[in-house]
Write a protein that binds this DNA or RNA. Structure first.
Length: 853
RNA sequence: GCCGACGUGGCGAAAUGGCAGACGCAACGGACUUAAAAUCCGUUUUCGCGAAAGCGGAGUGUGGGUUCGAGUCCCACCGUCGGCACCA
């Protein structure tokens, strides 16, 4: 019924028309330095969207939210004289494509191509000003060739702590380069998911089950490729400072990296000459360390456990190994552990302390061993109480006794600690650290929660590693052999064992008589770690990006990098951290010109369903962009996405809201067009190019120019649209209607509603003198402040902060004149009657507040 | 438990420390129409008084504070959402 309804303006005719026009004329193609048509005099602006994973479901309304925002910025910057790089591509490797392929029996390359075609059609239907000549796909061999190339750079580099930089492996002078490479092989317990037939990153495991499919995940040690992101922990924290990112995202990254300052302390074993090293952030509590705890997996447990305790220790270790992370943490309300029977010597007081194992100590953090200070650590206290271990207070809480200070975990004053008694915690930490360092008993140390990045997957649909194995050792494939394409497997199902599917391609695996290929593939994050660089020079077959293109688009003055990056928060500690890491390696090795890839980051908020709930198929509240566009048009869709509320805020969808902005666009349409007797749209009779714009209209118009420009700069699109509505409402009743004012409004509205404005601009060109420049290249209108000043201003008069009267005064009125006029007011007289005026505040142009008592 | 963000009409929201609720939705009234839709014009935070124009009071999660003046700044609490979760 509603679809039969006559459309308020014929978007169904002119939207496809302009999309075809932009395509045919390559309107939004931008040239690189050195190419014909490149204008070096213009500054650059690189505005980037997080490229989508092309799923079978197509676009949802969340994608175009950020994409519309960047589109507005891009078009606006172009009108302001910038060379704008605004590209789009596909994050097209990944598990869902592979799973869908397994289900349907189609090759993932086929389904991926279909999905990409669908996404591309949808994006074009919204009228985004992408430079489609720069389209890339991470699963394209011409692209992943360079992903593999970057992997080889990581493989052939190490982190030199002296220079605090990644350097070519040749500069490493140690015995074993394999121990320091940024890409290395490690045998470690990983999340193995038999259901999916692959290992998963920690982020891909939720409540002990796989995020995709909900299959159980178990821990098992496997040989895997790791990337040494931990070496960059400090820089990844420090270099956040200069970035224009939401503070909350920076904080998320800082917390994820989790830097802790403290000390390593060596505890000599009571028997034998081995020692155990612990990490602590509270070396000042060393005198209160009454026992030690090792992670059950700690290697030294084998050596120190006494005969009698072996059965209990073995049993505990096996039980722990079977537990998922979930069971080890959330469900484990009660502390568990076993005594090894061994003792160590506390280095500061020579006391014998028992050594336990317990799963509340994690093998992966610090040294996998702790000194337990039950008096000043909640977890240790709980453990000590359960197993009747001694508790000795060594930090005095302010105003509390020793006994009362048990359980106090903040800074206080050292007590029962002969070396540092009476010292406040910070000084005590420092003094004891120095004391330990002087005696070789320990040293200051910094630890990070961040773990090295598990980089291999047992999947088919991903980048193969450019690595060969020979005689039990790995070596790099030469760069000339890239891209290394996966074998054309018909059966790419997981093997059901940790053996990757690529193992089925026997011929492919065999590289030579003696060498075989690495069978793992890279995770989906690999391709997205550097795609923003490839956009700068997407078809280059000699280099991942030419130096000139990189320097222009990513350098280009200070601070450089992508000027604006818009995407969801969900990537705060994944993609955004991984990409920063790769970028720093490339920067250190001299391949890119900035240390950071994304200068300004904005997160768009999630769009909820009409019911205020998260959109999901099961709730049946999913809004399909195609439906909205066919009913209201692309411009209304774009405008509504921006009018809903602040970009960064979570907000619910509303179809009547779409109708509202559609009505607004129809009003703009009818400023220029009217229906004739036959019901056809023709240029309005009210239009006039000879009528001057009157003063009141000029004021609204210039206020709109000012506000829309400012609001676009600050990404406050919702208020920019409000202002254009006000402007349109002001123009609606006017007849004759000045064409120049309408042209200005069309220019302002163009980045938001590009089709409608292009169509009306063309109509005005036909009806009146044609503008020499097409709308997309019109210079952004300048506002004239002179039109905004008023001769007379309304001033609010308050008495004791309450509004009592309003007064119209000349804009040149002095403070004294305004004050006198205010006091003259009858209503003010009434209010201050019988009171003494104590004080008068005059805010020029705004208000007068009379304080009387 | 820890960290962070946010609480404003019936709804989405707006407000450099200076007239709270712009703009839009919904609702109601009117014009146009044989009628409806569309369109146009108006009303709409709330309470009290008033036939009405209007007049007066209250009001931005709660309670305090700073200030001539607080939605905005500070403190405490309550609630919603997001992140981390035995990281020594």
């Amino acid at each position: 019924m509603s679809s039969d309804r006559r459309k308020p303006y014929p978007f169904d005719l002119f939207e496809p028309k302009w999309q075809a026009h932009w395509d045919a004329h390559e309107t939004f193609r931008v040239r690189n330095p050195g190419e014909p048509g490149f204008d070096a005099s213009r500054p650059k602006f690189y505005v980037l969207d997080m490229f989508p994973y092309p799923s079978g479901a197509g676009l949802h309304v969340g994608h175009p939210e950020g994409y519309t925002a960047t589109d507005i910025i891009g078009r606006y910057k172009r009108m302001n004289g910038f060379n704008v790089l605004h590209p789009m591509g596909w994050d097209s490797f990944g598990l869902p494509a592979e799973q869908y392929a397994i289900k349907t029996g189609q090759h993932p390359a086929v389904t991926t191509a279909q999905n990409v075609a669908k996404f591309k059609t949808q994006l074009k239907t919204i009228g985004f000003a992408y430079d489609w000549s720069r389209e890339i796909a991470t699963s394209d061999p011409d692209y992943y060739r360079w992903t593999q190339w970057i992997f080889l750079k990581l493989y052939n580099s190490w982190f030199n702590p002296a220079s605090n930089k990644a350097e070519p492996i040749e500069t490493y002078s140690g015995e074993n380069p394999d121990s320091v490479r940024l890409a290395y092989v490690s045998e470690a317990p990983v999340n193995w998911c038999p259901g999916l037939g692959t290992v998963l990153a920690n982020e891909e495991v939720i409540d002990g089950k796989s995020e995709v499919g909900g299959y159980p995940v178990e821990r098992r040690p496997m040989r895997q490729w790791m990337l040494r992101i931990t070496a960059f922990g400090q820089r990844l924290i420090d270099e956040l400072d200069g970035l224009t990112w939401p503070e909350s995202i920076k904080l998320l990254q800082r917390n994820w990296i989790g830097r802790s300052e403290g000390a390593e302390v060596h505890f000599q074993l009571a028997e034998g000459d081995r020692r155990i090293t612990v990490f602590t952030t509270r070396p000042d509590t060393l005198f209160g360390a009454t026992y030690m705890v090792l992670a059950p997996e700690h290697k030294i447990v084998d050596e120190i456990t006494v005969e009698d305790q072996w059965p209990a220790v073995r049993e505990y270790r096996e039980r722990t190994a079977r537990k998922s992370d979930l069971e080890r943490t959330e469900l484990a309300k009660e502390k568990t552990g076993v005594f090894t029977g061994a003792y160590a010597i506390n280095p500061v007081n020579g006391e014998r302390v028992p050594i336990w194992i317990a799963d509340y100590v994690l093998q992966g953090y610090g040294t996998g061993a702790i000194m337990a200070v039950p008096a000043h650590d909640e977890r240790d206290l709980e453990f000590a109480q359960k197993f009747k271990l001694p508790v000795k207070p060594v930090v005095l809480a302010p105003g509390k006794s020793e006994e009362e200070s048990i359980g106090f975990c903040d800074n206080g004053v050292a007590v029962n600690s002969p070396l540092i008694d009476g010292l406040p915690t910070p000084e005590a930490k420092s003094k004891i650290s120095t004391w330990l360092e002087e005696r070789g008993l320990g040293k200051r140390s910094i630890n990070f929660k961040l773990r090295d990045w598990l980089f291999s997957r047992q999947r088919y649909w991903g980048e193969p590693f450019p690595i060969l194995w020979e005689g039990g050792r790995h070596r790099a494939l030469s760069e000339s052999e890239l891209p290394l394409t996966p074998p054309p497997l018909d059966d790419f199902k997981p093997t059901g064992t940790p053996e990757p599917p690529l193992s089925k391609a026997v011929d492919w695996v065999r590289y030579s008589e003696t060498a075989t290929r690495e069978l793992n593939t890279m995770p989906q994050w690999a391709g997205s770690c550097w795609y923003y660089l490839r956009y700068c020079d997407p078809t280059n077959s000699d280099r991942f990006v030419s130096k000139a293109a990189e320097e222009y688009w990513m350098g280009g003055g200070q601070p450089g990098g992508v000027d604006l990056y818009v995407g969801g928060t969900e990537h705060a500690v994944l993609h955004l951290l991984y990409a920063r890491f790769w970028h720093k390696v490339l920067f250190d090795l001299g391949y890119v010109s900035t240390p950071e890839p994304f200068q300004r980051l904005v997160n768009q908020g999630i769009i909820l369903g009409e019911d205020g709930q998260k959109m999901s198929k099961s709730r049946g509240n999913v809004v399909n962009p195609d439906d909205v566009i066919s009913q209201y048009g692309a411009d209304a869709f774009r405008l509504y996405e921006m009018f809903m509320g602040p970009l960064e805020q979570m907000k619910p969808w509303s179809m009547t809201g779409v109708e509202g902005v559609s009505r607004f666009l129809a009003r703009v349409w009818r400023l220029v067009m009217e229906e004739n007797q036959a019901g056809e749209w023709v240029p309005s009779q009210a239009l006039s190019d000879s009528t001057p714009v009157d003063k009141a209209l000029l004021k609204v118009l210039h206020a709109t120019i000012k506000k829309v420009g400012e609001d676009i700069e600050s990404l406050s699109f919702n208020t920019a649209i409000s202002q254009m509505m006000i402007c349109t409402n002001a123009l609606t009743g006017v007849s004759p209607r000045p064409v120049s004012a309408i042209r200005t409004l069309l220019q302002l509205l163009n980045p938001f509603a590009p089709h409608l404005t292009a169509e009306l601009w063309e109509t005005l060109d036909r009806r009146f003198a044609a503008s020499p420049v097409s709308l997309v290249d019109q210079p952004w209108p300048k506002f004239n402040p002179a039109f905004l000043v008023e001769d007379e201003i309304e001033i609010v008069i308050q008495v004791n902060g309450k509004n009592r009267d309003k007064l119209v005064v000349s804009k040149d009125a002095s403070k004294e004149e305004v004050e006198a006029a205010a006091k003259d007011s009858a209503k003010v007289q009434e209010s201050i009657d019988g009171k003494t005026v104590r004080k008068v505040i005059v805010v020029p142009g705004k208000l007068v507040n009379i304080v009387a008592a």
